[in-house]
Design a protein around this nucleic acid. Structure first.
Lengths: 349, 349
DNA sequence: TTGTACGCGTTATCAG
DNA sequence: CTGATAACGCGTACAA
């Protein structure tokens, strides 16, 4: 089944030339004119034999594996991750390189092992992704390899990172509600102390104040970001005459719970209460009725940004002088779009 | 930033031995006793220098890249895929090999290019995955590489494949409903003519008949498998006095639409109508209220099965005689578990 | 027990 | 315009 693959040597023999010449025409070596006739012959033979160069040998020789590693915690398991991977993969593909995707499952020893595995395979660079926006530090083994952090803020200086602009996201959510005319607001936040929860809250309140609404009037409840938590929080928030007319949920799953609470309380979305989510979780935000208006996380864009910067790091490092680092070492906060669906309308009261 | 990596030569020099000896101790060559003292020294030096063997060179030499490719259509983008990848990845990891994951986006030229890219990188084998259960044929370039199909039935003889047992799934769904005491049944199916839709229907009706219920009494409606389709179908199915008390939906998204229809018709799940989904779509099936009882697709298991069989193919081919093919060439239909949540109860009428 | 030397498939340098 | 030949880093017969 596995017949030995055809090598450049065979092509050379079959075409009656040296391997050097074959290599030359196949790689279009610049400034080197080859007799059109032999060139044609080589191309023909190569095609006929189905010759595919051995990338391992090429990489060994050129010191470029055209391979980058994407390492994440449980990144591979989550639906968000796919967008991130997709973004990185598309820019990688455009540069003829492929991705090794590995995930650690949050276990340190697995991470160590996988990083080593990546290095052993001579990846040109590494994309280190976190499933949720958080702060991390550079694993020591990565010190000698171009690395970019995705969906995480890296404390180690000189290492580029990209993460969602949570504050802007919070502001956007407030904007949607304020624009629709809501003034009595609620926010069901996540309890975890991570950039996402503090940032979205800060942005939300910020924007609310700018609109002339007293920030202390918005009721904030923090719960575990599961449907059950959203349900409980919404019950508490909405089961009162002074209930807010607009509620911002830390994420779409929380919003799911809020939907249920509304249904049980006999409140209609969006007529009685408007809801804004966060994540644009596919199959959740658009599967629910009415469709959930939500803020999308820029996963795809982070993947693209990260890969592009990784390449500039790799290329800049090509000479070993570290040039290019300065320009590439900047990090970024990316913003996702607001996805308008049916869960927000003007307040009835 | 990218300092030249340490090679085996440096380790040898530093330890005052030849590279042969270093190679021997690092690879634990069997039947070769090395002086414990030098062995210790080599290990120490190797560790101190942070030596990591160059996998490219190793592979070039040993003709084994310890790499397998996972190629799929839009597999990387979908939540199901991650389970599949995870399964494959875990068995791969256990055998010290990593996965190249690439996706074609259903474009033939992308697929050709990516397969070539995989071959160029000397993958030891290929896992060819489909996002939805369907029949496919072996791309010609893969003829010379060990290949296993995932979530697809391969028409080409000699190529192992693994797919979900749709008929069993349909039977399981019927079982759940029948067990709860339902006799008036409905089935909201997918319109597409794929193994999943025909198989689940067949299994469902089969099991229903076995229970002594006239199969022709179950109302079957085929729609596009989106929430909107499920909603429309459920409205048609349920807005009548003789409505079924138990409904099986082709997938969870369809079930989502059915939930909404129930809500609008004032029917309660599961008190007035029991619903069974399919897929166990994370964040949908358990995010909805009441939780959706559903049949899980064996994605993880397919990944494991596929990778294991791929390895047996690879190892069996090691001698080039093709031995082992016979044993490994069998294919399989895998069955997923029933996930009981709250959407099924005994019929009230 | 340890070292020398060759080959894996390429690319790149330098002659011819 | 074309062809030897030396790396790339490692594994491994074979020799010492």
């Amino acid at each position: 089944m596995k017949q030995p693959r055809v090598t450049i040597k065979q092509v050379a023999a079959e075409a009656g030339v040296s391997i050097t010449t074959v290599s030359h025409v196949l790689n279009d070596v610049p400034g080197l004119r080859v007799n059109p006739a032999t060139k044609q012959r080589i191309l023909e033979v190569s095609g006929r034999l189905g010759y595919i160069p051995n990338g391992l040998a090429q990489s060994l020789r050129t010191q470029r594996s055209h391979t980058i590693g994407l390492i994440g915690d449980e990144i591979v398991t989550t639906p968000f991750a796919s967008k991130l991977i997709l973004g990185a993969q598309e820019v990688a593909l455009a540069r003829d390189t492929v991705l090794f995707v590995v995930s650690t499952g949050y276990q340190r020893h697995v991470e160590d092992r996988e990083i080593e595995e990546l290095l052993r395979r001579q990846v040109d660079g590494i994309l280190y992704a976190s499933m949720f926006h958080r702060a991390v530090t550079l694993p020591r083994q990565l010190a000698s390899v171009p690395t970019v952090f995705l969906n995480a803020e890296c404390a180690t200086p000189g290492v580029p990172w990209v993460a969602p602009d949570e504050v802007a996201g919070g502001r956007d959510a407030a904007e949607v509600l304020l624009e629709a005319g809501h003034r009595r607001l609620g926010f069901i936040n996540n309890v975890d102390d991570i950039p996402a929860s503090s940032g979205r809250l800060a942005g939300f309140l910020q924007r609310v104040e700018e609109a002339g609404v007293d920030a202390s009037s918005v009721r904030v409840i923090s719960v575990e970001s599961e449907p059950a938590g959203g349900y409980a929080a919404a019950m508490e928030l909405l089961d009162t005459p002074e209930r807010p007319s607009g509620v911002f949920c830390f994420n779409d799953r929380l919003a799911l719970g809020a939907y249920r609470a509304c249904a049980e309380l006999g409140l209609r979305v969006p007529d009685d209460v408007s809801i804004v989510g966060f994540d644009n979780h596919e199959y959740v935000a658009d599967g629910v009725y009415p469709g959930l208006t939500t803020i999308e996380l820029p996963h795809y864009d982070m993947g693209v940004w990260g890969a592009e910067h990784l390449f500039s790091l790799i290329d800049g490092d090509a000479d070993g002088t570290g040039a290019g680092e300065v320009a590439a070492a900047e990090s970024a906060l990316l913003r996702g779009p607001v996805i308008h669906r049916g869960s927000v309308s003007s307040p009835s009261t």
